[in-house]
Structures are given as C-alpha cells and as structure tokens.
Write a protein that binds this DNA or RNA. Structure first.
Lengths: 241, 241
DNA sequence: CGAAAACTTGATTAGCATCAAACCAGGTGG
DNA sequence: CCACCTGGTTTGATGCTAATCAAGTTTTCG
C-alpha cells in the first residue's frame, strides 16, 4: 500500500476529505491501519484552525485529547516555581502534542500557537479504542514519546546553554527547520525570543539587529524573514569555537 | 494481590531472590504480571552494581537493553554541537533508562553513575516478548516515557534558568529528593555541578561555600552532606522574589 | 490621525567568567 | 614517618557579557 493511499479517497464524510488531503501523512500514528478503521475514525477527528497567539490547550484544561500539528509552529510553555514562563520546546508539522492526556494526566505544559496553526484534535477515547484493536498504533505512540523526549533534551543542550548570540543562532536554525520547505520563516516577537532563550528583549533585539547587518537575516518584514542558510552555518561555526 | 507479593518468594533461581528483595517494587513495569510470567523473567534480568563514575551505557553503545535504577543517582548526559557535555536530567531509584533501545534507536544520552549505583539490566527482547503477551506492560512503558519527558522539562524550567544561586538551590532540592529517605545527600564535584548548572567550578564553589556559611548545607564531608530542608526552602523563596 | 504597543539604541551596572594564586587531602616513595 | 606530589577546592582580582535603566523610533490599530 502506498503512502498516498493511507487515507482513502472518495468517502462521504467531510472530515474524510480533510484527512485525504492531509499533509502529515508521514505522521503515521494512523498510518498502518486497515481501511475499515480509517473510515471509522474520520468522524471523530476535528480539524481546527487556530490564530497566532491562540491556545491549543492550557495547563488547567481537562486532558481529553491529543493534537497533531498539520501546519504552523507551536510552543510548549511551562510556568516554573519562580512564576516565569518558560518554553520547553517548539513543535511543528507532524508533531503530536498532549500525549499525557492518553494517560489521564493533566497537561504538563500549555500549547500555544506561534503562527496560524492547523491541528487535528484526536479524542483520548479514540486512541484508546484504536490501540486496543491495533497494536501497531501503540508502537507509533511510543515513537512519538521518544521523539518528544529527544526534542526536549535537544532544546536543553542547544538552546539553553552558551552565550546569547549562539542561542539566538540555534533558535533561527530551529525555526528555519520548522518552516521548511517554505523560504520565509516565522520570527518571534522579541519578548517571545526572550522567553525561549532566557534573555531580555533588549538583548534579543540587539542580536537580531546585528544579524540583519551581517546579512544572516534578510527581507525582514514584521514577523517573517528569509535566512541565509550558508551565513547562518558560518556564524554558528565561528560562535562554537 | 498485595504489592509485597508482586515478586514471588521461594523460587530457586538466584535472580529471583534479588527481585524478591528488590526495593523498587513500586516501579511496576512488571507489576501487573501473573506469576507465570514473573517466574520466567528472572532468568533474563541481570542485577549489576556500578561504581561511582562508571558508565551504565554510552552514546555509541549498541542499544539492546533498558535499565531500572534500584539505588543511587544517575546523570543523563549529552554532547551538544559545540562539543561540551550537558546534563539533561538526573535519574534515581525507580527510574527507567534507555527506553529508546526498545524502539531500536541509538541511545540519545549517556547514563553515568554519580554515586555507587545498582541497576537491573533488562534486555530489549524480554520487554518486547512480554509486552506482546501482556498489554498492561505497554501502558507502564508509556507512563515511564511521560515521566522522563516531565523530568526533562522540569530540569529545563527549574535548573537551567535564573541566577546561579537559585539554580544551585534547586539542584540541592533535587538531590535531596533523590537521596530520600536517607539523611545525607550526594554532593557532586564542583566540575559536575558546573556541567549541570552551566556555570564555572569557581562560581559553584563560591555558592557552596556561601550555603555552608548560611548553614543550609551541614556536615559536609567530601561528597556527602546533610541539608537543612527548612533553610533550603527559605533560601529558595527569597531567591524567587 | 493619535495613542498604544513593539522595537531599537545608548549608558550604566551587576553577575558571572576568567585568570591567578593559595590551600588541602590522599596517596607515593624515599 | 615525613616530604612530596597531584587533583580537587577555595579565594581573590579583574574583565566581559548581558541585565537594567532610560530615551527615542517605528509599527499597529482603533
């Protein structure tokens, strides 16, 4: 069975059309399912657009669904004991959010749309039933968990250590990966950069200004910009010495 | 069935004795198993002591087992792109390490014994067979994954932001939780503190000295110390203002 | 168009890194 | 047994990075 056929064409339910055209088929949580299962699930999956700045879910919310990101950038945010916001990782196309809901645990972090975002809401119940019948789904889930863990550890190792300039460069690298294959990436507000990289908005602003002067950042217009991948790599190399 | 009976008494295999006396029964990866399964698995589990500073597994190693920590403190360490060591979290009694092995993925971080450590080596094959027959094991695995993710995010939110003194205080809090219920906790070398908290050994040393003068740290002898929990909390509160 | 919000830039300061020099404990060998 | 070395630690002096304080400037939006 080819990837293209994973989601069946020509069924009547409106969500079936959305799933059929879904760009994240490579996110194969439901990839290995037989057609019978596939037809059944469309009914329960809600495809929802969320505006930039909107919440996908918040800390206090009842944890009864997971969300697949179809497009856009999402930040996972905690409040630490000191009371300040703290971004623990960014998620993008294909990532699965809020898996703690599957274990009946409260959400450990809020999921906030950075850009306009398209997510699929998948109720806990549906995943539970499905994985009972289809053991392959469980393996997929575990892979997703491991992926999230790897992302969090990478964020820690790459974006929370070293001098401010290096951290900013690594954030831009991350953002350009999330934007791919689009040419223009999303630039966070200086305040959001500050929260992500543990620096003040002034420091963030100074570094961004410097990178524009150095032509690492190009065509900056509002919250979108193009980046010179070569120059970024070069800047990272010299910052890593 | 009571918790005490989870691991059956009086069976012949030497490892059965170790498991029967195992202190981490609350780590119930194998908790919900019927007796028949329990008897079978002892044979395949290796209980191994590791000296302080020793590796449980390294990055390059073939990932063919997970490890349960029975006692001691373990640090999970990555090398970032810049080439410096970076502790992504600490693990203790009851934690499950190296789960990526279950997915046939290379270890994402090295696991290094901070104190003398007792771990149980559980081959991937065993977990695979067991979870095929016993679906409850899979849920336990997912809970462990979520737990690791939560730990990593907490490390990020609490131990990698804020001024040096605050980070040190939070590390001491974490270490005293890992040591519990023992009265004395393990103090890392100043160098290890530096790697965990992203500071120099000089800064770490100065802060530790200050905390001894303030009687937050008591009875420091080599790598062991007692901590005044009240004073620690008070110090944290005033650092968090 | 005017006000608010976001961003930029400059001047000063604080916190931590760096450099440098003791200090101490534990081993080793004379 | 003591002199000596070695690795970890402590403490001090100095310098750099980024925070803070304080204007400006641009963008956004009612």
């Amino acid at each position: 069975m080819s990837l293209i056929q994973l989601y069946r064409q020509g069924v009547e339910h409106p969500q079936a059309q959305v799933c059929a055209q879904c760009g994240v088929r490579q996110f194969a949580l439901f990839g290995a399912l037989p057609d019978a299962e596939l037809d059944r699930i469309h009914t329960h999956i809600a495809d929802q657009p969320i505006a930039a700045g909107g919440m996908i879910y918040d800390l206090g919310q009842a944890p009864d669904a997971v969300y697949t990101v179809r497009s856009g950038v999402v930040r996972m945010e905690r409040i630490n004991e000191r009371g300040d916001r703290c971004v623990v990782r960014l998620a993008g196309r294909g990532d699965l959010l809020g898996m703690e809901a599957l274990l009946m645990q409260p959400y450990a972090a809020a999921a906030i749309a950075c850009t306009e975002v398209q997510v699929c809401r998948i109720p806990r119940q549906l995943v539970a039933e499905l994985s009972a019948r289809q053991p392959a789904v469980v393996t997929r889930l575990m892979e997703r968990w491991q992926h999230a863990l790897g992302d969090a550890e990478e964020w820690l190792a790459e974006l929370s250590v070293g001098p401010a300039r290096r951290r900013m460069l690594r954030l831009l690298l991350k953002l350009s990966e999330l934007a791919a294959p689009a040419p223009k990436l999303w630039l966070p507000s200086r305040e959001d950069m500050g929260v992500m990289l543990n620096m003040t908005i002034e420091t963030a602003s100074r570094i961004v200004s410097a990178l524009r002067r150095e032509s690492v950042l190009l065509d900056v217009e509002g919250r979108r910009a193009r980046i010179d991948a070569q120059a970024l790599q070069a800047a990272l190399r010299s910052a890593d010495l």
